[in-house]
């Protein structure tokens, strides 16, 4: 063929394209680094004013008083409290629904339920926050005769709805990945379906299910709008699940609009962002570690 282009220029073009694509792909890493850089750039100046310990473990969050106090311990406790109770609801529901989808549900119902969970994952958090405010809040207030229905309980229920899709869909993948031979071997030994699920399938999928739970928790702890709208907003250490709290995310979202630019308050909110970032990063890295280990050892971990 006559029109064949000179091969060397073609070759250089290929390499150029590869490198260009590599650069753009690397942008994700750069962006992640950039997030770190800018969180620290805006957050670290706080520690010229107070120590890290006073910040993390101080029990008073009065950022607009004179003199201001920037102890985020109540906020951390608030985040942990709503996440913990949300998981109490979301973990069993998420795992059981995954078992239902993966092992028990007949074809049609399975597809419907998968769509339900996908749509649930798609519900904007502000919608769930709104629902918690107008429905769950008043109901809690009336039923338990509380001063406010905006509290840990309410936030936990709404957060659970946000975390269920994460837990359910990742657990489902893990259950599907269990080799058929395991199940068949169990049935062939005369085990019932229940025994097979509990003793063979779930243990074999355990690392995947753990990943699901951890990622669900990370989702709950990083969620903003729900806790901003329904957790009640009190920056105090709670004593019961009907107390109002102010999780870290809610504090950032509520106060950033009013914090004067590069004031102590502004820096304190960014510093809170750093804490939040570190916690969720740790959760994600643990989940990543578990799922990678799982991949390496495969099904031999039973």
């Amino acid at each position: 063929m006559k029109n064949r282009k000179h091969s060397l220029t073609k070759h250089t073009k290929e390499i150029a394209i590869r490198n260009l694509f590599g650069f753009f792909a690397f942008l994700s890493v750069l962006l992640f680094g950039l997030i770190l850089v800018f969180l620290f750039r805006e957050g670290l100046p706080l520690f010229k004013q107070i120590s890290v310990t006073d910040f993390l473990f101080g029990t008073a969050w009065y950022p607009t008083y004179e003199p201001p106090e920037y102890g985020i311990w109540p906020l951390i406790v608030g985040s942990l409290a709503v996440t913990f109770f949300a998981c109490l609801i979301a973990v069993p529901l998420g795992i059981l629904s995954a078992v239902y989808i993966a092992e028990i549900a007949p074809g049609g119902i399975k597809e419907i339920l998968k769509s339900v969970i996908e749509l649930l994952a798609g519900l904007p958090s502000v919608v769930l926050g709104f629902f918690g405010m107008v429905i769950v809040g008043p109901w809690l207030q009336e039923t338990f005769d509380l001063p406010t229905g905006l509290n840990i309980m309410n936030a936990a229920v709404m957060l659970a709805i946000m975390a269920i899709p994460t837990i359910s869909s990742i657990s489902e993948d893990a259950l599907y990945a269990v080799p058929r031979e395991f199940k068949e071997a169990s049935y062939a030994l005369g085990a019932t379906k229940y025994e097979t699920i509990i003793r063979v399938i779930i243990p074999a999928a355990l690392s995947g299910i753990s990943t699901a739970v951890i990622l669900g928790m990370a989702r709950a702890i990083g969620e903003t709008m729900v806790v901003l709208m329904v957790a009640g907003g009190a920056a105090a250490i709670p004593e019961s699940i009907f107390d109002a709290v102010r999780p870290m995310t809610a504090s950032i979202a509520a106060e950033m609009g009013e914090a004067p630019f590069r004031s102590g308050h502004y820096h304190a909110l960014f510093a809170t962002g750093i804490v939040l970032f570190v916690i969720t990063l740790a959760f994600n890295l643990i989940a990543d570690y578990i799922s990678n280990r799982f991949r390496e050892t495969g099904s031999g971990t039973l």
Binding site: M1, R4, S7, L8, K10, H11
Partner: peptide, 10 residues
């Protein structure tokens, strides 16, 4: 090293 596999495959 200077041969382009694309050309060979043509």
């Amino acid at each position: 090293p200077d041969v382009d596999p694309v050309e060979i495959r043509q």
